[in-house]
Design a protein around this nucleic acid. Structure first.
Lengths: 343, 343
DNA sequence: CTGAAAGCGCTTACAG
DNA sequence: CTGAAAGCGCTTACAG
């Protein structure tokens, strides 16, 4: 049985890909010299020889085999990234930022969605690690068991956006607490006194604490609180729930843009006007937030800077465990009650 | 210089990862037998021996090296995917669907965003292909040169969602033409007579033809037409443009949900009511579309089915070049003028 | 049922 | 400046 694929260009079928040996033979040099030329070292090569090698590479359409290179060198010029769900705009943006930062350094990014692999326990993490990764970016909330596994992998790890940073590794995040506090304080400046909270699982989230404290400092009691997952659906459900108790709130602080997306849809369907009936302030600063109706006031996370720092930390192994907190920026748009700049 | 990283668990620092040889020695067998056990073949292994090997694997925390395996076998159990921008919800959904489909078959997906790598010409495609891929899913519009490169890679290729399918390979798409036609016909059923079009680059898009023909069959002339990229920003700009000539239209057919997202924001800002002033019908059926205000009427692409078919085509090399067209489904929500089901 | 050995395509220390 | 050779960690045909 031949492996010639009918899907590939007929002109190429049956023709095997050229290897370094083919190139060496064609150029009349050793395979070592081919490597020296292609890698610009570690040995110098005479210009004339180099030209011959390059000609051979072009003539044979030679493409180096990254797998063989990775096996020999021990690293694959590839970093792994674990996210809960890459469809979530916040993670989509983060993955993209990591991809750009990695790309600038000649690295490829291998992304694993844990939501589509949770069924096989933590084996997706091992599977990821088997690829000779240069490092691993974890943007997912891991169980203690998974954390232990990640630590034991022998690969550099950086945690991003964890609620509970780990003292054993580099963690990069934003100042959830003060970001949340600023947003809630802003709602209070608009005269809101019954500010609800919509967010994630109990106890782990600094944003919830920021919400309580901002209220407390203004002498206000916490409003209704709805916790769930960070999905649009959960936001929608929270919106329905809050709409049903609309007399108990005049504003909501939402822990993620994705949640706000669903929440605002539910509020609209219930006939509530934003911000007149309920003001909304959110968290993340996704690019979509600007296009919601009304445009969403949200606490921006500096995703590009965080991605850059994450890659740097991954590559610079001399750096010990540390927690790096990036500051957030409150983006004031209309959902909180601010007026459009142009009018 | 030691390579022990301060980022890894101190308990592991200095300890090198176990290899198949270590496991073999520990279990008192040959490395071949370790392979037979781990791969369930190709040779049978006595139960007692197998147990010893498994014990050794556990004791040494052995994890097979995927790179070495890929080098030896010639394939990496990995498929590549090229998308223009994984942040776009439509592509994010598609990547996710491909990831799930691949995951079910034990494959990993390596995603390349061409927008963050366009600068280096088509070298990102070669770089992708150097990883011993089992196949390549192309969800990006390629130049003729890039197409030629992809074809010459010697790797199975399937094109998804191309405006212009390629007769040389398997192409998987939806029936853009009839999907668009159905959406526009639906707007006409709502009594709209001046239906605008917002879409992509001139000439390449069957959705534009579907729009014209639906109008033509109803004896209606084409409304205003705005073309650009498929970004939210382009949709916003298109919305501003159409709002400025609001007297020339009473509906818009938009070629993608992402575009609709920006368009609706611009229409709202201009003080227009959807669907009262302008009805909107869109294309893609992203999960977000349901949460827009008002909920977006959109032509759904069966992304999961398409992803499954794409992976099947990639793996089944006996299948020749073909074009597979999936049917679309019109999802009627409120933006076209339909009333909510519940009221 | 088990093992010795070749080889996948690279890189690089070593020798010239 | 160039090359012969070892070796990265696997898989598998071949032999027992």
């Amino acid at each position: 049985m031949t492996t010639a694929s009918p899907l590939s260009d007929p002109r190429d079928s049956g023709r095997k890909a050229a290897t370094r040996t083919d190139v060496a033979r064609y150029a009349g040099v050793s395979s070592a010299v081919v490597s020296y030329v292609l890698n610009n070292g570690p040995k110098p090569v005479a210009p004339a020889t180099k030209a011959r090698v390059l000609d051979a590479v072009a003539a044979l359409h030679y493409r180096p085999n990254a797998t063989a290179r990775a096996l020999k060198r021990g690293v694959a010029d590839m970093i792994g990234m674990i996210v809960p769900d890459s469809r979530n705009p916040f993670f989509a943006g983060f993955v993209h930022a990591i991809d750009r930062a990695a790309s600038r350094r000649g690295l490829t990014v291998l992304v694993i969605n844990s939501d589509s692999r949770r069924e096989d326990g933590s084996s997706h993490i091992s599977a990821l690690a088997s690829h000779q990764l240069d490092g691993l970016v974890v943007a997912d909330t891991l169980t203690e068991e998974e954390r232990a596994l990640v630590m034991s992998l022998g690969v550099n790890v950086v945690l991003v956006n964890q609620f509970r940073p780990d003292s054993r590794v580099v963690s990069i995040g934003v100042d959830f607490y003060n970001g949340a506090k600023e947003a809630v304080a802003h709602l209070i400046e608009h005269g809101r006194e019954r500010v609800a909270f919509v967010g994630g699982d109990p106890g782990v989230d600094e944003r919830e604490r920021g919400w309580i404290d901002a209220l407390g400092e203004a002498g206000l009691p916490p409003g209704p609180r709805v916790r769930g997952s960070f999905s649009v659906e959960a936001g929608y459900a929270a919106g329905q729930k809050l709409a049903a108790q609309r007399d108990q709130l005049d504003a909501v602080f939402v822990a993620s843009d994705q949640l706000s997306f669903g929440l605002m849809a539910a509020l609209h369907e219930a006939g509530l006007t934003i911000p007149a009936d309920v003001a909304v302030a959110s968290f993340d600063g996704s690019s979509e937030s600007r296009y919601l109706c009304p445009p969403l006031t949200t606490v921006r996370q500096p995703v590009d800077e965080m991605a850059d720092a994450a890659i740097d930390a991954l590559l610079d192994t001399s750096r010990g465990a540390a927690y790096v907190d990036f500051p957030t920026t409150l983006i004031r748009r209309q959902s909180c009650g601010c007026h459009p700049a142009s009018s």
